[in-house]
């Protein structure tokens, strides 16, 4: 995951890059002894704070705040996990074995298996490996992150035309960027858009995993995270 070195040539993407939030750190409870439950607690707490960041960040996507409040809610309720997955994916791109949930919180296959996250590990590794092969750039990460909200296929939107326009702006930005950055690969925009089904499938896997953890009642979850999980049930 290289840092952007050249000007993007596209103002929407430059704006998205500028608005990228500071990475969130894991805050394991120092009074709890290390265990699989502690791993899950740390993860759920981290994702709850990351979710808060995603909601704040969404307001800075060009066009998002112009949507009605009802439609902003609908897009976030549908697309929040895909956005979170992209955050984890982008952090994990330069790692071969570990999922990098935060700079100070990385989990390998064995740790995931022990915590009951084996399916999620496998699904995430599959997605990460796809993006590693494509050498996904930071510009593409931020644009895809905005796109997953715009393209979240919520069934309860008030103004589909406004959402279509919101999608079109992001699509045009990505196309414009790829034309300048990858002139030798005219299909790169399409290739990126074709990763969205796998991204959604991975996010659904993650939602299932956290719903199961919630039902098992072994891990306390924050209210915001629960509220957003319930919106997906």
């Amino acid at each position: 995951y290289s840092s952007p070195t050249k000007p993007t040539g596209n103002k929407v993407i430059s704006h998205l890059l500028m608005m990228e939030p500071t990475p969130v750190c894991a805050m394991p409870d120092p009074t709890t002894p290390d265990s699989d439950i502690k791993t899950l607690m740390t993860l759920c707490d981290l994702l709850n704070r990351e979710l808060l960041v995603v909601i704040g960040w969404a307001k800075h996507i060009p066009g998002f705040s112009a949507l009605s409040l009802v439609d902003q809610m609908a897009l976030l309720q549908s697309g929040w996990m895909e956005a979170l997955i992209l955050v984890v994916v982008s952090r994990s791109l330069s790692f071969t074995e570990e999922l990098v949930f935060a700079g100070n919180f990385r989990l390998d296959r064995a740790q995931c298996r022990a915590a009951g996250l084996q399916d999620l590990y496998t699904a995430l590794k599959h997605l990460i490996s796809k993006y590693q092969q494509m050498h996904l750039s930071p510009e593409e990460v931020v644009t895809l992150k905005a796109m997953v909200l715009a393209n979240s296929d919520s069934g309860s939107v008030e103004n589909p035309e406004a959402i279509q326009q919101f999608q079109d702006v992001l699509h045009e930005a990505l196309q414009d960027f790829e034309t300048g950055r990858h002139p030798g690969d005219p299909h790169r925009t399409g290739k990126l858009l074709m990763t969205l089904p796998l991204l959604r499938q991975t996010a659904n896997r993650a939602v299932d995993t956290f719903c199961r953890l919630q039902l098992e009642g072994r891990v306390p979850m924050h209210k915001l995270f629960l509220e957003m999980l319930e919106a997906k049930m």
């Binding site: 103002k11 929407v12 704006h15 808060l52 909601i55 704040g56 307001k59 800075h60 996507i61 060009p62 066009g63 998002f64 705040s65 112009a66 409040l69 902003q72 809610m73 976030l76 309720q77 209210k223 915001l224 509220e227 957003m228 319930e230 919106a231």
Partner: peptide, 20 residues
């Protein structure tokens, strides 16, 4: 909306529209 009150509150707070 009542059901999703935290998200509703977060979005209502200091929305700054971006116009490029």
């Amino acid at each position: 909306k009542e059901k999703h009150k935290i998200l509703h509150r977060l979005l209502q707070n200091s929305s700054s529209p971006v116009d490029l």
